[in-house]
Amino acid sequence: MKKLFVMAAMVLSSVGAFAQQAAGTTTLQPKVGLNVATIGDNDWKAGFAAGAELQYQAADNFGIAVGALYSVQGFKGKDVDIDTPIGSGTIKNDFKWNPGYINVPITLNYYPVAGLALKAGLQPGFLVNKDDMDDAKTVDLSIPVGLSYEYQGIVFDARYNIGVTKLADNYDHYNNVIQITVGYKFAL
C-alpha cells in the first residue's frame, strides 16, 4: 500500500510539472463558472461568472494576476425584511436580487507545488445591473481567497470573495460569493 502511495505521488508530481509557466512569462486565461452568493442572513443563490485573467509569472513559485469577470451575485430569501429611505416592511413570498458586477480581481498566486496555486488579493467590483435596488453602491470591494489547480492548460479555480464594503449606506450587509470556474491558460 505504501508503494502505491509513493508511485501515485511521483506520477502526480511529474504531471504537475507540465502545469506551470516559467518565470518571466505572461499567460491569459479565459474562464466561465458558477457563483453561489448571499448577503447577510439570506439564502444562497446561484449565479454566473465569465471573463479572463492575465498573469505574470514573477518567479517559479509566484505569480501576479489581474482579471475582469462579469459576475451575477445577490441573494434569495423568503419574507425579506427591508428598510429603505422610501419605507420599510416585509416582502412576502420568494424574493431574489440578481445584481451584475464587473469584478477586477488582483491576486498574488503562490505555487507550493507545480500546478497548485494558493491565491489571495483585492477585488474591486463595479455594479452594472442594479436589478431594482436603486440605492445600491456602484463600487464594491472584496477580498478573494482560494486555490486553483492546472492540468495541461485547463485551470480549475475555487474562491471565496469576502465582502468588505456595505451594499448601500442604509443597508449593513456585504456581498459574500463562492466562485468556482474552469478556464484554459495559454502563454502570450
Results as ranks from 00 to 15, higher is better:
residue 2 K to L: 13
residue 3 K to L: 09
residue 3 K to N: 07
residue 5 F to A: 13
residue 7 M to A: 15
residue 8 A to C: 14
residue 9 A to W: 07
residue 11 V to K: 00
residue 15 V to M: 09
residue 18 F to T: 04
residue 18 F to Y: 06
residue 19 A to E: 06
residue 24 G to H: 06
residue 25 T to Y: 03
residue 30 P to T: 08
residue 31 K to G: 12
residue 32 V to W: 00
residue 35 N to Q: 09
residue 35 N to V: 00
residue 37 A to E: 02
residue 38 T to I: 01
residue 41 D to C: 07
residue 43 D to V: 00
residue 45 K to S: 01
residue 45 K to R: 05
residue 46 A to E: 05
residue 49 A to P: 03
residue 50 A to V: 12
residue 51 G to A: 11
residue 53 E to N: 14
residue 54 L to N: 05
residue 55 Q to N: 11
residue 55 Q to T: 15
residue 58 A to K: 06
residue 58 A to D: 06
residue 62 F to K: 01
residue 63 G to N: 09
residue 65 A to R: 10
residue 66 V to F: 05
residue 67 G to Q: 02
residue 67 G to P: 07
residue 68 A to M: 04
residue 69 L to R: 07
residue 70 Y to E: 08
residue 71 S to M: 12
residue 73 Q to T: 08
residue 73 Q to Y: 06
residue 75 F to I: 10
residue 81 D to Y: 09
residue 82 I to C: 15
residue 83 D to W: 09
residue 84 T to M: 12
residue 87 G to M: 13
residue 87 G to Q: 12
residue 88 S to W: 07
residue 90 T to K: 11
residue 91 I to P: 00
residue 92 K to R: 01
residue 94 D to R: 04
residue 97 W to R: 07
residue 99 P to R: 12
residue 107 T to C: 06
residue 108 L to I: 09
residue 108 L to F: 12
residue 110 Y to T: 07
residue 111 Y to A: 13
residue 111 Y to I: 10
residue 113 V to K: 13
residue 114 A to P: 10
residue 117 A to T: 06
residue 119 K to V: 01
residue 120 A to W: 13
residue 120 A to N: 11
residue 122 L to P: 00
residue 123 Q to R: 01
residue 123 Q to E: 06
residue 124 P to A: 04
residue 124 P to S: 02
residue 126 F to A: 03
residue 128 V to K: 11
residue 128 V to R: 10
residue 128 V to M: 12
residue 129 N to V: 14
residue 131 D to Y: 06
residue 132 D to I: 05
residue 133 M to Q: 04
residue 133 M to G: 00
residue 138 T to E: 12
residue 139 V to W: 14
residue 146 G to K: 03
residue 148 S to Q: 13
residue 150 E to A: 15
residue 150 E to V: 08
residue 151 Y to Q: 11
residue 153 G to E: 12
residue 155 V to T: 14
residue 158 A to I: 02
residue 158 A to Q: 01
residue 160 Y to S: 01
residue 161 N to I: 08
residue 162 I to Q: 05
residue 163 G to H: 07
residue 163 G to P: 11
residue 163 G to Y: 04
residue 164 V to Y: 03
residue 165 T to G: 00
residue 167 L to C: 10
residue 170 N to G: 14
residue 170 N to L: 06
residue 172 D to F: 07
residue 175 N to V: 00
residue 177 V to N: 09
residue 178 I to F: 06
residue 179 Q to N: 09
residue 181 T to Y: 05
residue 182 V to M: 06
residue 186 F to R: 07
